[in-house]
Amino acid sequence: MTARRSTPTRAVAWFLAPFAALLVVWAAVVAATGVPLRIFPQVTDVVAALVSMTASGELFVHVAASLRRVLIGSVLAIVTALPFGVALGASPRLSAFFAPLLRFSVALAGIAWIPIATLWLGYGDGAVIFIVWNAMFFALTYNTLLGVRRIPLPLLRAARSMGTGRVRMFWEILLPGALPSVVTGLRVGLGYGWRGLVAAEIIATSAGLGYALFLAQKTFSTDVIIASMVIIGVLWLVMDRLLLAPLERRTVQRWGMTAARP
């Protein structure tokens, strides 16, 4: 059964109800067992932590630092990976050569680069942005390559038989044709990038949500830990709903091309 589109309020209610239930269970269990705050916080503790983090401006600093890094890293990744992936996909020789290298690199991308990135770029923004870029770059390149190779041959032939030049071929045929796979690559890549960001911030910076987690862990402030985790989850959902889902709706779905599932 899919939720009916005609009643958005009901859909929202269905979406929120499970969270309400979760909060109730959480509050009840903590109240009944009386676990100490240094092991697990009560719901109210987390709300209080969120409020005080907001009031002190701390929350804003961390969120802004994390979002800035993700934004820079992913823009760099998109700008570098798409042309590279399309170029590789358009040539059977190049893609045969690079595909195994890319598979190897996708496996490594992101977190495994943290030691070398911090060695090369020092602790700080540079290393974190590098990790986000790196985490996305390989996944995006590989999926773009696959996407281009999956464009049905008759479409390529149709374009060629109408005299399409190289530049036009890229913008009008190869890129849109590969888009279902590119969207998958973006999803997977951003997922890696987001995780890489948190890990790199825990290890290598002095601002950002990962750093907030790391600080709170040192003082056993479980309320701040859980509050930061909630923020991380909400931010990801917001990015997914506000950026990826509309992109998918306006292109792949509008054109009747099914997106390759991650």
């Binding site: 995780r195 948190v198 990962g210 987690l213 930061s228 991380i232 989850g233």
Partner: peptide, 8 residues
């Protein structure tokens, strides 16, 4: 969405 590493 709560990236696994954030659980660490």
């Amino acid at each position: 969405a709560v990236a696994d590493i954030a659980w660490l």
